[in-house]
Amino acid sequence: MDPTIILAAGVASGTVLLFAAVGEIFAERAGVINLGVEGMMLIGAVVAFGTAVATGNAWLGLVLGTLAGGLLAVLHAVITISFQAEQVVSGLALTFLGTGLARVLGEDLSKAGAIALLPTLTIPGLAAVPAIGPILFTDQSVLVYVGYIVVPMAWYWINRTRPGLHLRAVGESPTAADTLGVDVYRLRYAYVVVGGLFAGLAGATITLAISPGWFGDLTVNGQGWIAIAIVIFAQWGVGRAALGAYAFAAIQRLLIDIQGPEQLFGFPNPFYVNHTLTFFLGMVPYVLIIAVLVAVSGEAIRKRIGAPAALGISYVRGERGH
């Protein structure tokens, strides 16, 4: 029940949610919802782990796992952008496909022994900063640091650059973007694939850094869905998504640690005494995310932040009428 340990663990496992959520933000900002995050993460996780087992090279696993997520996303792009099929249906199918494929590919991997993991780093100087040093900069996986860099870069890309301007335009008003010569189809393809690459990276982050090993579906265990909820909770903002990801993971860790001690604040720990109660603890993060969603949505409508206006709608050019 050491706050520093809980927060440091939150930042570490929050990095997985962060990558997946940032990827989904890119796709959704372009107007394409992709509910296949869970499937893409599983594929990324199994390919990364399998490669690391076979070659002994975790970096190669990271690259291939990331690419595998992107490859699966190409399928979603073809189905929803070229063939204009329902995005929700295609995304769900992608999750089933990804899950099944990962199970087959990972069949023998659960017996694989320890592998070489990606390195952890302590940043000299920064690690000595009181309070935040031990949480953010001590003994964290190299991918956690990648997360620190990805967030501001993604924010800058979306809000301060020409490609970002076009990305937002395509998701908010594809007709306007198309009239001005922005290639709506190409951009949507690109950002759906970017979303897949990030999901693959998220999956690889699990198996190569945060909780190594292959445990079938349980490797990802619904984190793809949490990432999608975090996108909504964050109202499609990268910074808020990062905070949400870290906070969610920290709370999950807290709820595990809370079951340990016999005494809690001088009283007998109810979760230690009665194990059934811990199932209620497991619900807490999910109840919390629903409560926060309800709380933020009213304010979001007033401030006109929120879902891109064209989210989930296929764009068809040159239809008569409007």
Partner: peptide, 25 residues
């Protein structure tokens, strides 16, 4: 029916689709 992006500013709407600026706005 105007082809404008409601959540963006006037200037941003003017700049959509142009080659300039190259990257940073």
């Amino acid at each position: 029916h105007f082809a404008l992006v409601p959540t963006q500013t006037v200037t941003e709407n003017v700049l959509i689709g142009l080659d300039r600026p190259r990257f940073r706005i």
